[in-house]
């Protein structure tokens, strides 16, 4: 039988105080993952004495995009990301990822921070943020530290967040100059679907050539990672030199190199290859290149 005391924090200070004072605290944000586990009396709740609801903490909410840097508060919901005109204009791939999550009801509650901290292998928020080179601000009573999002997940559902820390916000440098992006996802159906595969491509371009590029997997590998070989292949190439199908093949090889051959490989290999190909084609098309 699961038993815990429910606490509600109304400020970040209160959250940090509780985390410093008490042991065996589980933080509750939007609850769309956690309350499913709770309802199913997941054994992980047996080790919890306190459930700390932070949904009322205003300091953890909001989107700020400056010319150089941007930040997203951990409690920002997917619905807020999706409806933000700033996100739509400057970082549309983040809106695209948010819109692909769950259903309207889920997006109204589920938070980007919760998606990251829960760290499911199929979580949709990772790849767009890793493509931005995002860092997480993890705070405890003593202060804050920054962790590269890429290094945040140790294993599915296991992160480097310590018991006395809370994810405060996600910070990143804004892409500069001329840039294009693409977010791709395959699920079993459109709505309320768990990603089978997803990825983000973000590229800064100059004079019809790729200056910087990040192609990042979601759900393709146990933890989301940049496809370094694909990035290497695309970087510094002119649009005319790029073969989208080749980029797809390189990504597929890289994925299998990480995961090894699995039961799902005969499906995932060609599927991922096509997704990457599609993302690269999107980029070229958006950049107005007609081959």
């Amino acid at each position: 039988m699961v038993e815990y005391q429910l606490l509600r924090a109304h400020s970040l200070e209160e959250v940090l105080e509780i985390l410093a004072e008490k042991k065996k605290v589980q933080i509750l944000a939007g609850g769309t993952d956690l309350l499913v586990d709770l309802h199913q009396q997941d054994p992980k709740f047996e080790n919890i004495d306190y459930l700390l609801d932070i949904t009322d903490v205003a300091e953890l909410k909001g989107i700020k995009l400056g010319p150089e840097e941007g930040e997203i508060g951990a409690l920002t919901t997917h619905a807020e990301l999706l409806s933000s005109p700033e996100i739509k204009e400057k970082l549309p791939f983040i809106g695209a990822a948010a819109s692909s999550i769950g259903s309207t009801q889920i997006r109204n509650r589920a938070t980007i921070g919760g998606n990251l901290v829960n760290a499911a292998a199929c979580a949709d928020s990772f790849s767009p943020l890793i493509a931005l080179g995002a860092e997480l601000v993890l705070r405890n009573k003593g202060g804050a530290r920054r962790v590269l999002l890429e290094d945040f997940v140790e294993w599915p559902n296991q992160t480097v967040l310590k018991d006395n820390e809370v994810l405060e916000k996600i910070v990143f440098k804004m892409p500069q100059g001329e840039y294009y992006s693409s977010y791709q996802k395959i699920g079993r159906r459109n709505a309320v679907s768990i990603s089978r595969l997803s990825l983000t491509l973000l590229a800064e371009v100059e004079n019809e050539a790729i200056k910087n590029v990040q192609v990042v997997s979601g759900a393709a590998t146990p933890a989301p990672v940049p496809f370094r070989e694909v990035n290497k292949y695309l970087t510094a190439k002119t649009f005319a030199e790029i073969d989208p199908a080749e980029a797809g093949e390189i990504a597929a090889d890289e994925m299998v190199g990480i995961t090894g051959e699995r039961w799902s490989t005969p499906y995932k290999r060609p599927a991922l290859s096509k997704l990457v190909e599609r993302a690269v084609k999107d980029l070229l098309e958006e950049a107005g290149y007609n081959g």
């Binding site: 499913v36 309802h39 009801q105 889920i106 109204n108």
Partner: peptide, 21 residues
């Protein structure tokens, strides 16, 4: 979605919200 209600103008699944929240 059978349990959908509106909380502060937003549709939510009432099975995934604690009343205390």
């Amino acid at each position: 979605g059978a349990c959908t209600v509106i909380v502060d103008d937003q549709a939510v699944n009432s099975c995934l919200v604690l009343t205390a929240q």
